[in-house]
Write a protein that binds this DNA or RNA. Structure first.
Lengths: 166, 166
DNA sequence: GTCGGGTTACTCGGATAGTGCTTGTCCGAGTTAATCGGG
DNA sequence: CCCGATTAACTCGGACAAGCACTATCCGAGTAACCCGAC
């Protein structure tokens, strides 16, 4: 059981995009540079976020990404599902139906009790992730940060942020 | 995010072992045959359960596996951790410390807020899994089963169960 | 000076190789049951 | 008939390949800004 590294990158990137002014954008290469990761690889995950309608894309020079919704309306779950896919971690292969002397299929109309418990736990997991929004993350950071981390981010944004022209 | 197929096999196998009489054993090859999976591969996971002290092994002819603890004392979490390993799914790579103009390490004494939220969700997930024991699984099955599934299992056990001799 | 067209450079998007882990398999060490021989 | 040593077969345990998903990368399509020339 392992989450891809792309999840972490995607969440940090979304948090960074939340710091932009209304309408401004930030390029994927800038996000990659700030986080010290491969630009090509981060781009891949940004595309996933784009497909999930979590970010808007602005093509051309001075283009980049920008949040499509308010930071309040974007949860950790949204990001995780966008990057990792919506499939649950546990897949029931119905091995109870295999083996010798199999029973008729009608005995297995009800879902497997084991799968039910596993998926129930996963629903709880997702519900917990859904409780946290990007805004919550920013607030948590502010409470522990004495200003240095925020200052570094702002300095970076001063250079790379593409402000909305019109 | 994907759980290995071995988890499902391990849980079903543990449930089967719970149906044995006190002290009786069941070989890995029998478990594999009943579930229609590769014997060698299931054996691998049974070894993991053995390393985690969830099952006892009896070597030699008429040997096999048997639960080490009462079905009440074995939870889904125990099995999942034994097979998948204890590491959390989310690994924080501390990408907040990377990139240009890094800050001194002392600013990052506190764990990353994002990682904290992700791990918190995972704790909830594990807590939910810990709530369900093997016994609970058996009870859930009894409630939905009209007897056919249990009968098939018993018929198989009549052939393959190795009863305690002494 | 202003407007328009063309060029250019930068962006994202999807298709393409490399790598690590899960999956799947095999053979060997160890142990017990059964067997066979002797008493 | 009973007991014991030997044999043999069956078990698990760990070491060994194959497949797939994640990781990492590249090049192409598209677009907006910029520049240059004409008016």
């Amino acid at each position: 059981m392992k989450l891809g590294d792309g999840v972490e990158q995607a969440i940090h990137s979304m948090a960074m995009l939340a710091c932009l002014e209304e309408g401004s954008t930030l390029s994927a290469s800038a996000l990659a540079e700030y986080h010290g990761v491969s630009p090509s690889y981060l781009l891949k995950h940004m595309q996933a976020l784009s497909s999930a309608d979590l970010v808007d894309t602005v093509p051309g020079p001075k283009g980049g990404y920008r949040l499509k919704r308010k930071p309040d309306d974007i949860s950790l779950l949204d990001i995780v599902l966008a990057v990792e896919g919506p499939q649950p971690a546990f897949r029931c292969n119905e091995i109870r139906q295999r083996g010798p002397n199999p029973l008729p299929a009608r005995y297995f109309d009800k879902p497997c009790g084991i799968a039910a418990k596993m998926l129930a736990a996963e629903r709880v997991y997702r519900a917990e992730l859904a409780k946290t929004s990007i805004t919550d993350l920013m607030q948590d950071l502010q409470e522990t940060d004495d200003g240095a981390i925020a200052a570094r981010g702002c300095a970076f944004l001063d250079i790379h942020e593409r402000k909305q022209v019109r």
